Amino acid sequence: MVDDNDDRQKTDRSQQYLANERTFLSWVRTSIAMIGLGFIISKFSLFLTEFRIIIFGYSLESSELNPYQTPSSIDQISNWIGIGTVSLAIVLILFALKNYLSTHKSIKTQTYSPNQKTIYFTTAIIVFLSIIVFVYLVLVPSI
């Protein structure tokens, strides 16, 4: 005899597993987007250097060293912000994997309780990076 209650519990648990996988995949998508953003921020200094060459008319045939051709501290800051964003994305994906595995285990043993540490940590880091970018945009003069 098949117990309907037992079937319902299996269905409920499969929904929990699927929700856990969807959550993990959303963290993966977020991490991939952050890696792309970090790359763009890091390579933005290359765009600024080329823009300076165009604006100030630097010629490759010229033998003099043009201060607008050499990387500035602004370019270095842009590079470090990009590297920091990519590093955060790597940490975030590792955190997501840890959370996925622990949630999977707790669903299996029926001892699941929400863990909000990851949410608080991620929010704090993103706010911190946003403040750094904001200060960078306000304090760094535009060309």
Results as ranks from 00 to 15, higher is better:
Ile74Leu: 12
Val127Lys: 08
Arg52Gly: 02
Leu97Ala: 14
Ser87Lys: 04
Val138Ala: 07
Ala33Trp: 10
Leu25Gly: 03
Ile41Leu: 13
Asn66Thr: 11
Lys43Ser: 00
Thr103Arg: 07
Ile40Ser: 05
Leu92Pro: 00
Leu97Trp: 09
Ile143His: 03
Gly82His: 00
Ile143Phe: 09
Leu65Glu: 08
Thr122Cys: 07
Asn99Lys: 15
Gln15Met: 09
Ala33Gln: 05
Ile74His: 06
Pro67Val: 01
Pro71Asn: 04
Leu60Tyr: 14
Pro67Phe: 00
Val138Met: 10
Val91Cys: 12
Val2Cys: 08
Leu18Ala: 06
Ser26Asn: 07
Met34Leu: 12
Phe56Pro: 01
Glu21Gly: 15
Asp75Pro: 05
Leu48Gln: 09
Ile131Leu: 13
Ile93Met: 08
Ser78Pro: 04
Ile83His: 12
Phe44Met: 14
Val28Cys: 09
Ser72Asn: 08
Val28Arg: 08
Glu64Asp: 11
Thr111Trp: 06
Thr49Gln: 06
Ser73Val: 10
Phe56Thr: 02
Leu46Trp: 04
Ile119Lys: 11
Asp4Pro: 13
Asn79Met: 07
Ala124Cys: 15
Ile83Trp: 12
Leu101Glu: 03
Ile126Asp: 00
Ser45Ala: 15
Tyr68Met: 10
Arg52His: 09
Ile132Leu: 06
Gln16Ala: 11
Lys10Val: 04
Leu92Cys: 02
Gly84Asn: 10
Asn115Ile: 05
Ile119Ser: 09
Met34Arg: 07
Phe121Tyr: 09
Ser63Gln: 10
Glu21Gln: 10
Ser42Ile: 00
Pro67Thr: 00
Leu88Glu: 00
Glu21Ser: 10
Gln16Lys: 10
Ile53Arg: 05
Gly38Tyr: 04
Asp3Cys: 08
Ala96Thr: 02
Ala124Gly: 14
Ile119Arg: 12
Ser87Asp: 07
Asn5Gln: 12
Ser59Cys: 15
Gly84Pro: 03
Ser31Val: 01
Thr11Asn: 11
Pro67Arg: 00
Phe47Asp: 05
Tyr17Trp: 09
